[in-house]
Nucleic acid binder design. Structure first.
Lengths: 329, 329
DNA sequence: CAGCTCGATGTTTACGTAAACACTCGCGGC
DNA sequence: GCCGCGAGTGTTTACGTAAACATCGAGCTG
């Protein structure tokens, strides 16, 4: 900066003013400074800037994996929303499985150059990973049960699951089987709870659940089980990937979807409409979740108040061709 | 830091030494300082640290979208590789479509707090977006043709496509149709070129290509066209999502895969093995690409030399059940 | 036991920026 | 014509850290 000032024949303060677009610099001087900046390839040092300003204009996103559609789509929305507000996004991946060596990665987290943090993972997993969120940092949690500790933005899992199961019940199915997500996921838990609630409210028997791990492969394995059960006429899968596995298993075992058996998914991933058959599923508005997360943290940062409310983003059922009335009807 | 020093009864320099794990601090003093840090909730200021050190220990990743599997998987690998090296990742999304207002977002890019940049997008699109990478910053480009300007790490697209098409030719198909990716993608272009080369080398006719946009939906539309052509017995799709769309279109039109028509994809996404039927596809090692990108930038940063070589990551064909000999055989 | 070395700690300084304040004009009002 | 004001610019200072250098004392050597 000093070099630029010297070359332009002004003080460094004036360079600073130009670089920040402040008013109070006469046009001719401004041009001279800009020319000098260009000539010297001047690039403001954001470290110094952050030091001075006391803020980084950066949000940290803690996530466990990029392998689920939901996380990725939410992250994408967060990134764009943050960019609109002039904030950058720093990724903080968390490798829970191996407790060893992980600790080192996290101590850094505390000293990370961020003004706020958005957590896209089950908070209790965070605890398990012995990560402690640094104090005095604003946090918003997406897609999880954060207890009373943090502000939460989440899809209305219960509503979505209810829509899905009710749809199947309304079609005339006696009962609905459920392919659940992993037991340690609150999102999966809430979908399961809602599924059970709908069946109970409708006075139907509640069959045992089958559990998967969100992957298509686990859906396939579950499908092999369910295909062997002739009484099974409807399945509510906790996500679309597992539903894909179900579809393959049913196809391979001659169980026609939807004639013999109906399948509903959850998420409405882009590919769902091109499954065979196109999948009826619950649409989650990940973009909205991401946007609200950013809004939430920024608001907390600006007010310097940690809030704790839960914001629910509504879902909607997208009916395609994988559901129909049961064969007996 | 000064507060901590006062509370522990030492100088701020000693606090600094403790906080950095430097040697030369007697154990008892160290404990006293640590206790003080804890009591005051001290958190080192990374802006000041970066200012002093002249580096941010952060890499920027420029990408256009998180909606393609490849980008996401590469990003994931980059993130983990960077974490291992003690570097954080800052996301710099680029919204090309709207030229308006975008500019503002990019000027920031030049002053971003990063030591190096990894670009996961077609470089010529970067140009089109009037983004200029700041000078004196090390850059590695993934998955693109960067001309002579940058160091490039890419999957060996040609080899992969060759494997796919050769596989179909070897099965006895007279020729192979090609569902290409968008025309402005170099990756798509290279896959198309390799497809044509194999056919020509084998002395087969080169049918016209059908073009999609990477989405399953575009694959479906292409599939409707191809299903109507009775001579079409084999299709090489430029990615798995489009292959999914093909499968649906063929299924809906009574064209059995693989008995009537063979389909090969590209990418080997996790879901590909649960398509109906499980998809034969070209496996890309995104993780390896990501890892090498990080290695590349870090090396450039450490040597302060911009390199320009291209590193190719090999592919392999994964044969599943969507390919077979043509019906006439 | 003087002189020296070395380990532990303190003091000074600089990193690049921008806020706060100081200064210098030219111009309008009285 | 003098005063005051405000626009344009310069000067000083502080942000939090860590390298470089300074200091101090204990232990060792000759």
């Amino acid at each position: 900066m000093a070099d630029v000032a010297r070359l332009a024949g002004v003080s460094s303060q004036t360079v600073s003013r130009v670089s920040n677009g402040s008013t109070g610099v006469v046009e001719e001087t401004r041009q001279r400074v800009l020319a000098a900046m260009k000539e010297l390839g001047y690039r403001p040092n954001s470290a110094a800037r952050a030091l001075k300003a006391g803020e980084f204009r950066t949000l940290g996103v803690i996530l466990f994996t990029l392998s689920t559609t939901g996380n990725v789509r939410t992250l994408e929305a967060i990134t764009h929303a943050a960019a609109r507000e002039g904030y950058a996004i720093t990724l903080m991946p968390v490798a829970v499985p191996t407790q060893t060596g992980v600790h080192g990665a996290f101590t850094r987290l505390g000293e990370l150059a961020v003004d706020g943090i958005i957590v896209i993972m089950e908070v209790h997993l965070l605890d398990a990973a012995t990560i402690s969120l640094p104090p005095h940092i604003q946090v918003v949690v997406a897609d999880s049960d954060a207890g009373q500790r943090y502000s939460v933005v989440d899809t209305d899992q219960s509503e979505g699951a209810r829509l899905a199961v009710q749809h199947l019940v309304d079609l005339g199915h006696d009962t609905v089987r459920h392919l659940a997500g992993p037991a340690d996921s609150f999102a999966a838990q809430r979908r399961t709870d809602a599924w059970r609630a709908v069946l109970e409210d409708a006075g139907r028997t509640v069959p045992p659940i089958v559990r998967g791990d969100w992957s298509a492969e686990s859906g396939y394995r579950a499908g092999l089980l369910l295909a062997a059960d002739p009484d099974c006429t409807a399945v509510f899968a906790a996500n679309d990937q597992m539903a894909l596995g179900l579809l393959r298993a049913f196809h391979e075992h001659g169980r026609r979807v939807p004639q013999d058996i109906s399948v509903v998914g959850f998420d409405d991933i882009a590919e769902a409409r091109d499954f065979i058959p196109p999948l009826t599923t619950v649409h989650q508005d990940f973009a909205d979740v991401g946007r609200r997360c950013v809004e939430g943290v920024l608001q907390q940062i600006r007010n310097q108040t940690a809030e704790q409310g839960t914001t629910l983003v509504p879902t909607r059922l997208v009916v395609r061709e994988s559901t129909a009335a049961p064969p007996s009807c």
